[in-house]
Nucleic acid binder design. Structure first.
Length: 292
DNA sequence: CTCCAGGTTCCGG
DNA sequence: CCGGAACATGGA
């Protein structure tokens, strides 16, 4: 990140209430990949808007004028206590809840979410962050903010003009073709991300899966992290591990569709929340047992 | 060096 | 419907 002019962390801040929210845990939970620590808080873009956010106890101190945007993006209106009350009360879920309390399911811009999760396949979170930042730097708009140069996420129309080689130079590997294809389908109007918001869950899932590089897992991430479908339950390698080792312990030949059906029925109306907590807890604490 | 990572797609039973 | 293999890249 370049310094475009010397300036300390922003001083024109306003306070908003965030009683049950945990900013650090939320930003570290593998939903978004572009926030930078800055002073005692964080800077990043929400859409085209550069924002500073710092948590002090039950309050967020944020750039003046970004109150509505921040509240929506971080889903500060989600009633976490009511959501927790719907979780199954088994030991694994209780452990995850204890570890993840305060994480919200965010409400990201749809395209940015689709694009970053297209690049996520077979990549660690640190790599997804690198690719996301490289794409912003190469194709996004620079925004000078609080002495830092931030970059917006390029819209589909912009990436549609890129070459596959340019995207590979952002270290996308085989994902370059998929991201380019998806950008083109959306820029051409063949897929309408706004209209997907009006569809029911199964229909929206099917529509998202028409994009190259988007299968059931990525589509569910997008439904969850961008469209507020809090029942969507993405099954990645971590969640599959949790399901098999805890909820299907000792059972053999458990198929993928079996896991899907179980997770849909067992985790309730906020299954997506349960999934995110189980994922984050497992990813942060899992160690392969010695000798196996 | 080997293993694996917030998968998708294609191909053969 | 199911399992297997290919696909790029870099951190552990």
């Amino acid at each position: 990140m370049k310094h475009c002019k010397p300036e300390a962390p922003p001083t024109d801040l306003v306070r908003i209430a965030a009683p049950d929210f945990d900013l650090l845990r939320t930003l570290d939970s593998g939903q978004v990949f572009h926030w930078h620590p800055h002073g005692a808080g964080w800077v990043g873009t929400i859409g085209d808007q550069p924002v500073f956010v710092e948590q002090r106890g039950k309050s967020l101190w944020i750039s003046r004028g970004t109150e509505d945007v921040v509240r929506h993006y971080f889903a500060l209106d989600h009633a976490l206590k009511e959501i927790y009350a719907t979780f199954p009360a088994d030991p694994a879920m209780n452990g995850a809840l204890d570890y993840c309390k305060g994480i919200t399911i965010m409400q990201q811009p749809a395209w940015e979410c689709v694009a970053t999760f297209i690049t996520s396949s077979l990549k660690q979170v640190a790599h997804i962050r690198q690719m996301s930042l490289a794409i912003r730097k190469a194709f996004g708009e620079p925004v000078c903010f609080s002495g830092l140069e931030l970059f917006t996420y390029p819209p589909p129309e912009r990436l549609a003009l890129a070459s596959e080689k340019q995207l590979r130079d952002c270290k996308l590997g085989f994902r370059a073709k998929n991201l380019l294809g998806a950008a083109r389908k959306i820029a051409d109007g063949e897929i309408d991300l706004q209209r997907i918001g009006t569809m029911d869950d199964p229909e929206a899932l099917a529509e998202l899966c028409k994009l190259p590089g988007v299968g059931e897992k990525v589509a569910n991430c997008v439904l969850l992290f961008a469209y507020g479908r809090l029942r969507a339950f993405p099954i990645d390698v971590w969640i599959e591990r949790v399901l098999r080792e805890i909820y299907f312990r000792g059972k053999r030949s458990v198929t993928a569709s079996r896991l899907k059906r179980f997770s849909r029925e067992y985790f309730g109306p906020y299954g997506g929340y349960a999934q995110q907590y189980l994922f984050h807890h497992a990813r942060k604490t899992y160690r392969t047992p010695p000798g196996s």
